[in-house]
Design a binder for these strands. Structure first.
Length: 893
RNA sequence: GGGCAGUUAGCUCAGUUGGUAGAGCGCCACGCUUACACCGUGGAUGUCAGAGGUUCGAGCCCUCUACUGCCCACCA
C-alpha cells in the first residue's frame, strides 16, 4: 500500500467515499478487528449494545459507533488485545409486531390464525433476512468491531444460555409465579414493564358518581373517577379511617349502580381524604392502588376486560363493548338514572404503551417474576464501592436511587417471538419445573413424559439482553473467550436504558459470573436536530446518518458527534458543524498533500525527536506536539473524548498548518538538499504522530494520509499510540511565541493602517537577549509578516541610531517594532492609538499592583501565582515605558 | 410531588484539581503569498441567567430565585 508515496499525485480535495470503502475493506481483510488472545496482557473489552433487528440506522447508532470505536481504536493502539463485540437484538415486542403487520398485509391473517409454529417460522425467515442489515450499516460508519464474534440474542448459543440462567434462578427460588396487578398492553396483548409505559398528561374528565347506601334510602356516597368503566368491577368503596364524614358508613353496604351488586365501605389509610370526595371506588382488578386496598381488606377481584380491552362477561350489559365505548355508554346510563353528580375537566397522567401507543390497562394476571432484592443488593454495592463507575458521575445516583426502590421484575410476556420460558407443567402429577434443555424429556417428579406442556409465554427481551456481556462470550461454557475477556471494560450506551439494560447486566453479571460485567459505564447524549428537538419519524426531522456520511464523510460525522458535546449531554447536530469537520479533514488532506508535493522519495521515516541543534521552529513544533500527546493521552484516559478531539483540531490547524507549515516553506525551498530534508523530516514526524492521535476520531482520512507519508508499519489502525515523552523545550516555546507576537503585530498594524503595499519596511528593536533570535528568524518575519527582506533592520535598544518618526509602531513583550511609512501616516491618529494602548496597559498595571499590594494575596496565594503576577506587572511596566517613549518621540515631530 | 441537567460573543458550543474568558460558524475589512476559497490575514462583539455567600481571588464551590429541558412518582 505504501508504494503510492511520491508516485501518485494527490487530488486537490479529499474524497471521503473512495478512501472509506478502500480502508475498511483493507482492515477487514487483514483481520485487525479481531484481537489476539495474549494471556500476558490485560485485554480491553467493549460489548456493543446490540441494535434491534427491526430498527433503522439512526444517529444514536452513529453516536455509539463514534464513541465506542474511538475508545476501541485508542486501546488497540495502546497495544492491548482489544475486543469490541457486535451483535443484534431480537427486539421482543417490536420484532413480533413487525412480522404481524407483514403477515396481515400479505394474507390478512393474524398470528393466532397462523398459530405459534407457523408464525415463528415466518419471524425467523424475516430475521434471517434483516438480522445483519443494521449491523452492516455500522461498517459504513467505520466500526472496527470483531465481526467474527458477532452474536444474536436469539441464536442457539444465546437460547441455551437463557435457559440455563432461568433454570438456575428458578432452582435458587429467585423466580416465582404470582398474580399481581400488571401493565397490560391491549395493542400488543402482552404484559409490559413499568419502564415501557409512558405517562402522558392529558385533559380528561373527573366523573362524580353516587352510590346509594343500602337500607338508607336517599343517602349516597359520592365517588370521583377518571375511568368510570372500571366501576363494573368495583368491589368496595374506600375512605380514610380518619375521615369523620364517613365514619358511620364504614362497614355498611352500598349498591353498585348499573350492576346492582352490593359492595362494602372500607376504611384504608391509602385514601387521601382531601382529594375528590374522599371516597374512592375500589376496583382491585383494574387499578394498582385499589389492588393494594383489596389485598388489605380481602376484597374479591373482578376482571371485567378481555385481553383486547373489550368488556367481558363480568361487565353485564356492556359485554363486548370496547373500553372507551363502554365508558361513554356507562356515563350516559348513569346520567339517565340519576347517579351522575357532576363532571369536571381534569388533567391527569394517562399511561401509554411505549410499543403500541395505546392506553395501558392495569389488570391482574398471573406472571413469572424475578425476585429482585437478592440481585439488586450486590449490584448496588458495586456502584457504591466504585467497582462500576459512571461517566458522567451523576448517573451513579440515578442508578442507585432506582435500584434502591426496585420492585420484582415481571419477566413473562404473552408473545410468540422471544425466549420461550423453560418451565414445564406435568399434568399427570402437577409438577412444575424448569429445564435448560430444549424440552423436558420426562417429569422430574413422576417420571411421566406424556402429559408435559411448556409454559406458553416468552421472556422479556431484556432478560437475554441482561446476559449479553457474558452470553456473547460463550457462557455457560467455560470458553477461552469467557475466561479472557470477562469482565469487560466499558459499557457505552444511552442514558435512557440505564434501568432497562445497564442495571440488569450488572445484576446478572454479578449473579452468574461473580463479577461486574464492566468497570465503567459511559453514557452519551441523545442526538437532536438543529433546533434541539428529538428526532422522530412523526416529526419528520430524522436525519439519516448514512445521508450525512455520503455528504460529509464518515469521519466528519463522527468527529462532529464526538467534539460537539460532553458525555451525558444531548447534542444538536447541525450542518455547519458537519461542514466544519469535513473542512478539517480536507485541511489535513492538503497539509499532507503539500508535504508530499515537496518530494518525499527516499525519505526514511523517523519519529519527531527533539534535539538542541534543530532550528527554533522545529523545537517549537516538537515541543507543542509532545504537549498535545500528553494532553490527549490524559483526556482519553479520563473519557474526555470531545476535549481530546478539539485539542487535536486546534493543534493541527492552528499550530501545525497555520504556523509550522508556513515557516517550513523557507527551508523546503532551500537549495541545500540537507536543509530541505531535515525540514521534511520534522514535518513528516510531527504530522505522522498527530495522525496517530487523531485516528480514533477520524479513522479513514488519517489512515489514507498516513499511508501517503513515510511511516513504519502496515496500517495506522495497528500503529502505536504516541508515547508521552516530555520532549518539551520551554525556552523554544517562549521564543517562538515572541516571534509570533512580532509577526502578528506587523500584520495587524498593516491591516489597521490599510497599508497597500504587500511588502513593507520594518525596524525591530529587540530586547538584548532576543536580538540574535530575531536576526536568525529574519526570514520568517519577512515571509510571514510581509516585510521586504532588504528593508528589515534589527537592533537592540542601544544600537538603534534614531527612532523613525514617520512610522507605525507597536510594542510586544520582546520588542518595539517600527514600520516606516513616510508620508502615508497620520501622526495624530498614531498618537491617539498609542495613547489608547497606554491607557490599557496602565489599567493592567493598576490591577496587578492592587492585587500585589493585598497582603493576604501575597501570603495565601501559591508562590507560583504570586510570581506570575509579579512578572506580569514587570512586563507591563516595561512595555509602558517603551510606549511612553514612543509617544514622546512622536510628540516632538 | 420529588430529583437531575442546562442557562458563557448574533448562532452552536468548549472551559475537571478556583488564578486576569475560548473555538467554529456568521459578520466587517483585506487577500490568487506556487497545500488548501472545504483557503489565508486582520477586526468587532461577553456585568459567563439573576441575587446573596465562602475565598486573597469564583464561569468554576455553597444558598436562593427565574426560565428551559429531562428523569422518576399508584392521588382515584
Amino acid at each position: 500500500m505504501s508504494d503510492i508515496i511520491g508516485k501518485k499525485e494527490m487530488e486537490k480535495a479529499y474524497n471521503p467515499a473512495a478512501a472509506e470503502a478502500k480502508w475498511y475493506a483493507f482492515w477487514q481483510e487483514k483481520g485487525y478487528f479481531t484481537p489476539k488472545i495474549d494471556k500476558s496482557k490485560k485485554p480491553w473489552v467493549c460489548i456493543m449494545p446490540p441494535p434491534n433487528v427491526t430498527g433503522a440506522l439512526h444517529q444514536g447508532h452513529a453516536m455509539f459507533v463514534a464513541a465506542e470505536d474511538a475508545m476501541t481504536r485508542y486501546h488497540r493502539m495502546l497495544g492491548e488485545p482489544t475486543l469490541w463485540l457486535p451483535g443484534s437484538d431480537h427486539a421482543g415486542i417490536s420484532g413480533e409486531t413487525v412480522v404481524e403487520k407483514l403477515i396481515w398485509k400479505e394474507s390478512k391473517q393474524t398470528k393466532n390464525d397462523l398459530g405459534r409454529e407457523a408464525f415463528l417460522q415466518r419471524v425467523w425467515q424475516w430475521m434471517d433476512e434483516y438480522r445483519d442489515v443494521i449491523v452492516q450499516q455500522l461498517e459504513v460508519l467505520g466500526a472496527s468491531a470483531d465481526w467474527t464474534r458477532k452474536a444474536f440474542t436469539m441464536d442457539p448459543p444465546r437460547q441455551r444460555a437463557v435457559r440455563v440462567a432461568f433454570k438456575r434462578l428458578f432452582d435458587e427460588g429467585l423466580i416465582y409465579r404470582a398474580a399481581r396487578i400488571v401493565n397490560w398492553c391491549p395493542g400488543s396483548m402482552t404484559v409490559i414493564s413499568d419502564l415501557e409505559v409512558d405517562m402522558v398528561e392529558e385533559l380528561g374528565s373527573l366523573w362524580y358518581i353516587r352510590y346509594p347506601v343500602k337500607d338508607q334510602p336517599g343517602r349516597f356516597v359520592t365517588v370521583a373517577t377518571t375511568r368510570p368503566e372500571t366501576m363494573l368491577g368495583d368491589t368496595a368503596v374506600a375512605v380514610n379511617p380518619k375521615d369523620t364524614r364517613y365514619t358511620d358508613l364504614v362497614g355498611q353496604m352500598l349498591t353498585l349502580p348499573l350492576m346492582n351488586r352490593e359492595i362494602p365501605v372500607v376504611a384504608d389509610d391509602g385514601v387521601d381524604a382531601s382529594f375528590g370526595t374522599g371516597a374512592v371506588k375500589t376496583t382491585p382488578g383494574h387499578d394498582p392502588l385499589d389492588f393494594e386496598i383489596g389485598q388489605r381488606h380481602n376484597l374479591p377481584i373482578i376482571n371485567i376486560m378481555n385481553p383486547n380491552a373489550t368488556i367481558n362477561e363480568n361487565g353485564g350489559q356492556y359485554v363486548g363493548l370496547d373500553r372507551f365505548e363502554a365508558r361513554k355508554q356507562i356515563v350516559a346510563d348513569l346520567e339517565r338514572e340519576g347517579f351522575l353528580v357532576k363532571v369536571e375537566p381534569y388533567t391527569h397522567n394517562v399511561p401509554y404503551s411505549e410499543r403500541a401507543g395505546v392506553v395501558v390497562e392495569p389488570l391482574v394476571k398471573e406472571q413469572w417474576w424475578v425476585k429482585i432484592k437478592p440481585l439488586a443488593q450486590p449490584a448496588l454495592e458495586a456502584a457504591y464501592k466504585g467497582r462500576v463507575k459512571f461517566v458522567p458521575d451523576r448517573f451513579k445516583k440515578i442508578y442507585t436511587d432506582w435500584m434502591e426502590n426496585l420492585h420484582d421484575w415481571a419477566v413473562s410476556r404473552q408473545l410468540f417471538w422471544g425466549h420461550r420460558i423453560p418451565i414445564w407443567y406435568c399434568d399427570n402429577c402437577g409438577n412444575v419445573e424448569a429445564t435448560d434443555e430444549e424440552s423436558l424429556a420426562a417429569c422430574g417428579k413422576c417420571g411421566h413424559s406424556d402429559q408435559l406442556r411448556q409454559d406458553p409465554d416468552v421472556l422479556d427481551t431484556w432478560f437475554s439482553s441482561g446476559m449479553w456481556p457474558f452470553s456473547t462470550l460463550g457462557w455457560p461454557d467455560q470458553t477461552e473467550d469467557l475466561a479472557y475477556f470477562y469482565p469487560g471494560s466499558v459499557m457505552e450506551t444511552a442514558p435512557d436504558i440505564i434501568f432497562l439494560w445497564v442495571a440488569r447486566m450488572i445484576m446478572f453479571g454479578i449473579h452468574f459470573m461473580g463479577d461486574v460485567p464492566f468497570h465503567t459505564v459511559y453514557l452519551h447524549g441523545l442526538v437532536r436536530d438543529e433546533k434541539g428537538e428529538k428526532m422522530s419519524k412523526s416529526k419528520g426531522n430524522v436525519v439519516d446518518p448514512l445521508e450525512n456520511v455520503r455528504e460529509f464523510g464518515s469521519d466528519a460525522l463522527r468527529f462532529t458527534l464526538l467534539t460537539g458535546s460532553t458525555p451525558g449531554v444531548d447534542i444538536k447536530l447541525s450542518r455547519t458543524r458537519l461542514t466544519d469537520s469535513r473542512n478539517f479533514a480536507n485541511k489535513l488532506w492538503n497539509a499532507t498533500r503539500f508535504i508530499s508535493l515537496s518530494g518525499l522519495e527516499g525519505l526514511e521515516y523517523q519519529p519527531a525527536t527533539l534535539s538542541a541543534d534543530l532550528p527554533l521552529a522545529d523545537r517549537w513544533i516538537i515541543s507543542r506536539y509532545s504537549q498535545v500527546v500528553k494532553d490527549t493521552s490524559r483526556m482519553m484516559e479520563n473519557y474526555q473524548l470531545g476535549e481530546a478531539g478539539r485539542a487535536l483540531y486546534d493543534f493541527l490547524w492552528g499550530e501545525f498548518c497555520d504556523w509550522y507549515i508556513e515557516v517550513s516553506k523557507l527551508r523546503l525551498n532551500s537549495p541545500d538538499p540537507a536543509t530541505k530534508q531535515a525540514s521534511q523530516q520534522v514535518l513528516v514526524g510531527v504530522l505522522e504522530g498527530a495522525l496517530r492521535l487523531l485516528h480514533p476520531f477520524m479513522p479513514f482520512v488519517t489512515e489514507e494520509l498516513w499511508q501517503n507519508l513515510p511511516h513504519s508499519g502496515e496500517s495506522l489502525i495497528v500503529a502505536l499510540w504516541p508515547e508521552a515523552n516530555d520532549q518539551i523545550d520551554l525556552a523554544a516555546v517562549s521564543q517562538f511565541e515572541a516571534l509570533q507576537e512580532v509577526i502578528k503585530g506587523i500584520r495587524n498594524a498593516k491591516s489597521e493602517a490599510k497599508v497597500e503595499s504587500k511588502r513593507v519596511a520594518a525596524i525591530i528593536v529587540a530586547k538584548p537577549e532576543l536580538k540574535t533570535l530575531f536576526e536568525q528568524q529574519a526570514e520568517s518575519v519577512t515571509r510571514l509578516a510581509g516585510v521586504e527582506a532588504s528593508q528589515l533592520q534589527i537592533f537592540d535598544a542601544a544600537g538603534l541610531p534614531e527612532a523613525p518618526r514617520q512610522a507605525l509602531s507597536f510594542v510586544t513583550a520582546g520588542a518595539t517594532v517600527y514600520l516606516p511609512l513616510a508620508g502615508m501616516l497620520d501622526l495624530a491618529v498614531e498618537r491617539s492609538r498609542l495613547a489608547k494602548e497606554i491607557e490599557e496597559v496602565q489599567k493592567e498595571i493598576e490591577k496587578a499592583e492592587r492585587t500585589l499590594s493585598n497582603a493576604s494575596f501575597v501570603d495565601r496565594a501559591p508562590v507560583a501565582v504570586v510570581a506570575k503576577e509579579r512578572e506580569r506587572l514587570a512586563a507591563n511596566q516595561e512595555k509602558l515605558s517603551r510606549l511612553e517613549q514612543r509617544l514622546q518621540e512622536l510628540a516632538t515631530v
